[in-house]
Computed example of a mutant assay.
Amino acid sequence: MTATAFLSVSPRVEGSMAPEIAKAVDALEEFDIEYETTPMGTILEASEVGELFAAAEAAHEAVDGHRVGTFLKIDDKRTVEEAAERKVEKVEEHLGREAKSQGGRNQ
């Protein structure tokens, strides 16, 4: 089984959230999961759904602030073993290119 998730922890703080988000990301190191942080949240990958819940709870608890919002979206593939990276590769195969901009506004 492969379970992937999108985790977003949003502390209410003055100024930049980066120091608190770093605490949340660091808390993930205690778990047997793969993760990749993006500008909007963190992609998690584990062999069991319970690992995702535990990691998300730890990330949530690691953040200081008088209010913290946490969003966790899970994709639990129960009959197929497929890495998160493979999901992107399949989309790219259909696109015939990488699944990201080829230039545009950022040039």
Rank of each mutant, 00 (worst) to 15 (best):
S16G: 07
Y35G: 03
E36M: 09
F31H: 10
L28I: 02
R78N: 08
S47A: 14
E29Q: 12
T38L: 13
T42H: 05
E51W: 01
K87V: 00
A56C: 12
A55V: 01
R12E: 13
E98M: 09
E81W: 05
K100G: 11
E34R: 15
G50D: 11
A22V: 08
T79F: 02
D76E: 12
A22L: 04
I33D: 11
V80T: 13
K23D: 11
A62T: 00
S47Y: 10
D26P: 02
H60I: 03
R78L: 10
P11E: 13
L28E: 07
G15N: 09
L95T: 03
L95H: 00
K73H: 13
E34D: 15
G103W: 01
E98T: 09
A22C: 06
E85R: 08
G104F: 04
L95Q: 05
I33G: 06
N106H: 15
E48R: 15
E51G: 03
S101L: 14
D32H: 06
A83F: 02
A59K: 07
D26R: 11
E51P: 01
A84T: 12
V25Q: 14
L44A: 04
Q102M: 09
A59C: 06
L52N: 07
V91L: 15
G96K: 08
S47Q: 13
G96W: 04
K90N: 14
T42M: 06
G41K: 05
E30G: 07
H66P: 11
A84K: 07
E45K: 07
V9Y: 09
M17E: 09
T37W: 02
G96M: 02
V9D: 08
S47G: 15
A58T: 08
E92R: 02
H94P: 04
P39T: 05
K100Y: 11
V91C: 08
I43C: 08
S8L: 11
E30D: 14
V91E: 09
I74Q: 02
G41N: 06
A55T: 09
A24C: 12
S101R: 14
D75Q: 07
S8F: 03
T37L: 08
G103K: 00
I74G: 01
I43W: 07
E30S: 14
D64L: 02
L52Q: 05
A18N: 14
E81D: 14
